[in-house]
């Protein structure tokens, strides 16, 4: 019984991919390298924690989260400076404590805070957007033992949509990496 089945009635629509299960991060990592070297691209692995070296083992590109977030941090700084300048010097000019209507010195703290706020929130938003989350329904949730990945299971998936995918040959490749078991994951 698939774990997220209560979100949608499961209607099998054919093969989604092949899944192999391993007993630990080291064995999973080795299997991923073997699959990458065999030329598979549409692969994914599942583990209770991020595994050091997995990006390289699966041939994943470096995450774009940081590069885009930096743009938002500049936006935050600009908004803060504009806001402080306009409200203080244009919108409601009032001399307090003999200070100039606008100066950089007292504007730094708020500029810093808004920079931080926008970078933090944009990193999180980007992570979710790049990951396509939230998404409550996914074929892998139907895989056997998948409900224990969050506990202590380590799995490797090769999707059917990979051009190199061939149910027999791919299964043989996976079997050669000494998994605990292999299974077919069905589409939903």
């Amino acid at each position: 019984m698939g774990l997220m089945s209560f979100f949608a009635p499961r209607v099998p629509k054919g093969v989604y991919g092949l899944m192999a299960e391993y007993d630990g991060p080291d064995t999973l990592l080795e299997a991923c390298k073997a699959v990458r070297d065999a030329g598979y691209k549409k692969t994914d692995s599942f583990s209770p924690f991020p595994i050091h070296g997995m990006e390289e083992a699966l041939g994943l590109p470096e995450s774009k989260v940081g590069k885009i977030a930096i743009l938002f941090s500049f936006t935050g700084a600009s908004i803060a400076l504009l806001m402080q300048w306009w409200t203080g010097a244009e919108g409601y000019p009032l001399i307090v404590g003999g200070k100039p209507l606008f100066a950089f010195e007292p504007s730094i703290p708020i500029t810093f805070e808004l920079t931080v706020l926008l970078s933090a929130f944009s990193s999180v938003a980007l992570m979710l957007a790049l990951n396509g989350l939230p998404r409550f329904n996914h074929p892998v949730f139907g895989a056997k033992n998948f409900d224990r990945v969050g506990d202590d299971r380590f799995m490797l998936l090769i999707e059917k949509s990979d051009p190199k995918f061939d149910e027999t040959a791919t299964r043989q490749l996976l079997e050669a990496t000494h998994p605990k078991s292999t299974q077919v994951v069905e589409s939903n």
């Binding site: 599942f46 991020p50 995450s63 933090a120 990193s123 999180v124 990951n131 996914h138 990945v149």
Partner: peptide
């Protein structure tokens, strides 16, 4: 399930997640 945003422990997700976590640590 709703609060975990449908997290499925995928390596492709962990990559972005780790980068985000590192960024949040660096920002914090």
């Amino acid at each position: 399930g709703v609060f975990s945003l449908g997290w499925r422990f995928s390596a492709r997700h962990w990559t972005n997640y780790e980068k985000m976590y590192l960024l949040l640590a660096a920002i914090s």
